[in-house]
Design a protein around this nucleic acid. Structure first.
Lengths: 127, 127
DNA sequence: CCTAAATATACCTTGACACGTATATGCGTT
DNA sequence: AACGCATATACGTGTCAAGGTATATTTAGG
């Protein structure tokens, strides 16, 4: 369990991280909102803490967990090398994002995206 | 092996993806550059292809693999919700947005970027 | 056709990790 | 001190994915 990528590969851990975006939460609050058994929450939080994704402070018997930025930056840094590549495929990207918009439309406020004519693709690499 | 996060959790797969950033490569080229056995390369490429990270074209006995953008965008979309947390490093973020702006400038439309202090942490938990 | 090269797949083994259940630890209250 | 709540940890189990080795498939060329 060394890399940040392995950490975020686990769906429950991603759920926890997403929960913590809004504000810090206690173990019990996470447990209830995500409807997962308490030991599961604690164990995932341990992994997340050791990987630097979260930190905790003690509040009586409760532990309040909140996000830490560094590992996210690490993921972002890795992703960066591909940004150049996918901006060359903006059109496919736009189409993809349109589908994402559609699937998350329940959130109400969606960023509207405009649709343009297709631009040229294909760097002419085929043999 | 459903999610994109599980796919990129594997170091060898990340290595392959990084290799393909520069240009498309054959299995043998990947095998030699990464010094990993050929079946390993093929199997990872299969996983990557089924997850939409790469696609291949046939060149005689060779298969040329190249990147596809959509899954990367999916990772980026997930990462987006955490961006406000690491805006401590505004510089990298700004650079990122700058490149986004630049690369999509052909589309003409504005991409809004909030600037200034986003000092909005520590929501005063119950203590 | 037959062979060699490039790539894919099949089979097996192994190890990691996520889960459930049970139990331990810590803290606050009476 | 004793109890109860919140959280952590220990242990046993099952699953699944990655690696290794062997073999199959495809294609070019003689």
């Amino acid at each position: 369990m060394e890399s940040v990528f392995e950490i975020i590969a686990e769906p429950n851990r991603r759920a926890i991280l997403s929960l913590l975006v809004s504000s810090q939460q206690s173990v019990g609050e996470i447990e209830r909102q995500l409807r997962m058994p308490q030991p599961t929450v604690s164990k995932h939080l341990r992994v997340l803490r050791e990987a630097g994704f979260v930190e905790s402070t003690v509040d009586a018997q409760r532990r309040l967990y909140r996000l830490k930025p560094e590992p996210f930056q690490e993921v972002d840094a890795w992703l960066a090398q591909f940004r150049r590549f996918w901006s060359a495929h903006v059109d496919a990207l736009e189409r993809h994002l349109d589908r994402m918009d559609e699937s998350t439309a329940t959130k109400g406020k969606t960023r509207r995206r405009r649709r343009g004519p297709n631009r040229e693709r294909d760097k002419g690499e085929t043999k």
